[in-house]
Measured scan of single mutants.
Amino acid sequence: MAEAPPRRLGLGPPPGDAPRAELVALTAVQSEQGEAGGGGSPRRLGLLGSPLPPGAPLPGPGSGSGSACGQRSSAAHKRYRRLQNWVYNVLERPRGWAFVYHVFIFLLVFSCLVLSVLSTIQEHQELANECLLILEFVMIVVFGLEYIVRVWSAGCCCRYRGWQGRFRFARKPFCVIDFIVFVASVAVIAAGTQGNIFATSALRSMRFLQILRMVRMDRRGGTWKLLGSVVYAHSKELITAWYIGFLVLIFASFLVYLAEKDANSDFSSYADSLWWGTITLTTIGYGDKTPHTWLGRVLAAGFALLGISFFALPAGILGSGFALKVQEQHRQKHFEKRRMPAANLIQAAWRLYSTDMSRAYLTATWYYYDSILPSFRELALLFEHVQRARNGGLRPLEVRRAPVPDGAPSRYPPVATCHRPGSTSFCPGESSRMGIKDRIRMGSSQRRTGPSKQHLAPPTMPTSPSSEQVGEATSPTKVQKSWSFNDRTRFRASLRLKPRTSAEDAPSEEVA
């Protein structure tokens, strides 16, 4: 009796068929016929556990003709996506030579605008209408194809895939403007070719909807975003200037109206006075309405000098805001240009540092100066060695804690006790272990408590650290204090090793 083939788990290929790579489910599931010992083939499952149809090819690079078809379809799909992405970037994010197409579109729109203006002049109306009709045909074809291509290429973005995504893309403001202008152009052409009475009025009214094509030149909205950011950044200043200017306008108009309503027919109503105030304070000055009385002229002159300053403030605020924003954008561009080279330089330096163990090129690091100058660790070890030599091999803490019996001779020589300023008595072995921070803190506390006492003391002649007598400086308080830590004499004296002298005989010792 033939044995059933062993159940295979995992992703390994079956024996005897090495080139074939078959994806098997996580659990080997066989058909009921196979479990019962029949000759049925096992049921194939996909990666998600769903059964595959009987005629479906197995996924994998070596699955025969199905694999070749899959490779061809995958390559075609990649080319399709690449083309779609390229078209989308050309239309929505132009760079380099892609601006040539947008310059061509701008020339078409500008020519249409010029011809629309010439069509309103009686001398050039006939020729402009003929040229404009031909140009409209060209623009309908160009913009119609462009609109379709834009909607198709938007599928390269995830949020615009599918018919719902394309509809979302078509609802964008600039796409809506394109659609309105396209419909208006078709209506103008249809009305112009019919030759009816309505054609002339339709051409004159709907052609100027094509002015909206100038708005579509900035599809990404960079200028509007820049203007919005400047207004938002200086909103408080703008609101303040406009508010005060509006108050000056209504008060000036009302007072001039009261002064001129009886003697001047131009100011017969408050609305006429508001019109005069707006034209005057905005420095336009049509001259259609002028005050005639001396009181009205004085009020107009005073409020004009006051109001023009507030009406001119928004222009200066926006101008300075634009300058600052442009400078910030230039700085951001320079930062973006330098970020990648800086990151590459840091990575290269780290690779060199991690692979080169000698690091002989590091001549400006802490390790280099640590090898030249005595390190703080060596100074600490030197302090501890000196203290243990004086205390008979014991550390200062051990000397303080060691009990001394009554009447027993002390094995240590008597030492002079010292007192730290602002604290109780402490171990004499710690007097010379006072660090730089303690010395600086002690000097600052003395300056806070009594700076007036220092200038009363007789001035001391500054001497070099080499000429100081070591026996005289029994305490860190003898170090000359200065008002600034930048004094080199104080810094050098604080680094010197001060020996400890006994109370009975204080021989001067120098520590090399």
Rank of each mutant, 00 (worst) to 15 (best):
H102P: 13
I105L: 07
F106L: 15
F106Y: 11
L107F: 10
L108P: 01
V109L: 06
V109I: 03
F110Y: 09
L113V: 14
L113R: 13
L115P: 04
S116C: 02
T120I: 06
Q125H: 11
L132R: 02
L133H: 15
L133V: 04
L133R: 00
L133P: 00
L133I: 02
L133F: 03
E136A: 12
E136G: 15
E136V: 09
E136Q: 05
F143Y: 14
V149F: 11
C156W: 09
K172Q: 14
K172E: 15
P173T: 07
P173S: 10
C175F: 06
C175Y: 08
C175R: 00
I177N: 15
I177S: 10
D178Y: 07
D178A: 02
D178E: 03
D178H: 08
I180M: 08
V181G: 09
V181A: 12
A184D: 10
A184V: 08
V188L: 02
V188F: 03
V188D: 04
V188G: 12
I189N: 08
A191S: 05
A191E: 04
G192D: 08
T193P: 13
Q194P: 01
N196T: 08
N196Y: 13
N196S: 13
I197F: 01
I197L: 06
F198I: 09
S201A: 05
S201F: 01
L203P: 13
R204C: 11
M206T: 11
M206V: 04
F208Y: 14
F208C: 11
F208S: 04
L209P: 12
L209Q: 12
Q210E: 14
Q210K: 01
I211V: 02
I211T: 05
I211S: 03
L212Q: 01
R213G: 06
R213S: 12
R213H: 00
R213C: 01
M214V: 00
M214T: 00
V215G: 02
R216H: 00
R216C: 01
M217T: 11
D218G: 02
R219L: 03
R219G: 14
R219H: 09
R220C: 10
G221C: 10
G221S: 10
T223P: 00
T223I: 03
T223S: 05
W224L: 03
K225N: 09
K225T: 05
K225E: 13
K225Q: 09
G228R: 14
V231F: 08
Y232N: 15
K236T: 13
K236R: 07
L238M: 07
I239S: 04
T240P: 06
Y243H: 12
G245W: 07
L249V: 07
F251Y: 15
S253T: 04
F254S: 15
Y257F: 14
S269C: 13
A271S: 02
A271G: 06
A271T: 07
T278M: 10
T290S: 11
W294C: 05
F310V: 08
F310S: 06
K325M: 05
K333E: 12
